Simulated scan of single mutants.
Amino acid sequence: MWLTWRAAMEHALYGESGFYLRERPSGHFRTSVGVSPVFAEAVLRELVAVDEELGGPGTLDLVDIGAGEGVLASGVLAAAPASLRRRLRVTAVELAPRPAALPEEIVWARAAPDGICGLVIANEWLDNIPVDIVEQTATGPRLVLVNVIDGEERLGGRPGDADLAWLNRWWPMRLTGERAEIGRPRDRAWASVIVRLARGRAIAIDYAHSADDRPPYGTLAGYRDGSTVAPVPDGSCDITAHVALDACAAAGESAGAVTTALTTQREALRALGVTGRRPPAELAGRDPRGYLRALARSSEEAELIAPGGLGGFGWLSQTRQGLRR
């Protein structure tokens, strides 16, 4: 069966027996959430900052979109001081069934709630929102079709006018054979998050690129069992493509965001106290176990902020209702 890549990804990832309805992400790829509790602790510090800027509302929201197995939501809840935890309403947004071991306090939902007052985190969510792929030809962009059984590709028709307009603004192709991933579905998804944010901050964290460094042949990839594989949309693997976060930022502003910051995970986490600094060598002599614990933590922090790895992820932070950062 030949489909556009967007339709094929939708079926492979979220259709009946799709990858994300059947598999647990931790078995297939490593994310910041799974590296260390340090990531959840940094998110908690961000949440505390938002709480202070909001003036300590009676109910403070933490919404984790694309929650996977609920590790981030559980980690933030566990690390939160009792005084904050009493006011905290945690919602994990995920299509897969609720994990059996998830704390009862966490609401498991298929969509983000309305009227969020607090912090939204979307960690590696946008890259799994299906997109169409186009290839530049001598007569203009053409949609790429894919055989869902074996991943073979061929060219289809022209994209629609709205997609062509998006390409012209955000990802113009100049040479025959170049490819682009049309990010309009991601823009709409992110705008829907901003609309649901009544007061507070929303942060998208993902593999990303910007207008001045678009990859000329796209970023489509597959992952299974911890390894990169051919992106065959048969439901056997994760299929992902990097995110045009600058386009998402513009969509968020159109939806009501009043401030926007685009940075890297390295810079964002360093601002939240994640430095990767090794413990002083003299600690090994007076507290060997403490030294080993501190050394392990510094190694985890270093992985989270490594420029060529997780630290290179893009962070898009937008606020509503006058929060400033």
Rank of each mutant, 00 (worst) to 15 (best):
A42S: 10
A42W: 03
V43R: 02
L44M: 03
L44Q: 12
L44T: 08
R45F: 00
R45N: 13
R45S: 15
R45Q: 14
E46W: 00
E46D: 11
V48P: 09
V48F: 00
V48E: 13
A49D: 15
V50M: 04
D51F: 01
D51V: 04
E52R: 13
E53F: 00
L54M: 04
L54P: 12
G55F: 00
G55L: 00
G56W: 07
G56H: 12
T59L: 13
T59P: 09
D61E: 12
L62K: 03
L62W: 00
L62F: 00
L62I: 01
V63N: 08
V63W: 03
D64Q: 06
D64K: 04
D64A: 02
I65M: 05
I65R: 07
I65N: 02
I65K: 04
I65P: 01
A67G: 13
A67R: 12
G68L: 12
G68H: 11
E69S: 11
E69R: 13
E69K: 09
G70Y: 05
G70I: 05
G70M: 09
V71N: 11
V71K: 14
V71R: 14
V71C: 05
L72G: 13
L72D: 15
A73I: 01
A73P: 07
S74Q: 15
S74K: 14
V76N: 07
V76Y: 07
L77V: 03
L77A: 12
A79I: 08
A80R: 15
A80C: 11
A80K: 13
A80M: 13
P81R: 05
P81Q: 10
P81W: 03
A82R: 15
S83H: 13
L84R: 12
R85I: 04
R85L: 07
R86F: 02
R86S: 11
R86H: 07
R87N: 10
R87A: 10
R87E: 11
L88F: 01
L88H: 01
L88A: 08
L88P: 02
L88S: 06
L88W: 01
R89C: 08
R89L: 05
T91P: 14
T91V: 15
A92K: 03
A92W: 00
A92Q: 06
A92T: 07
V93L: 01
V93R: 01
V93Q: 04
V93A: 03
E94N: 06
E94H: 02
L95K: 14
L95T: 11
P99E: 06
P99R: 09
P99C: 04
P99H: 08
A100D: 14
L102S: 09
L102G: 09
L102M: 03
P103T: 08
P103C: 02
E104Q: 12
E104N: 05
E105A: 11
E105R: 14
I106Q: 09
V107Y: 04
A109P: 03
R110E: 14
A111H: 10
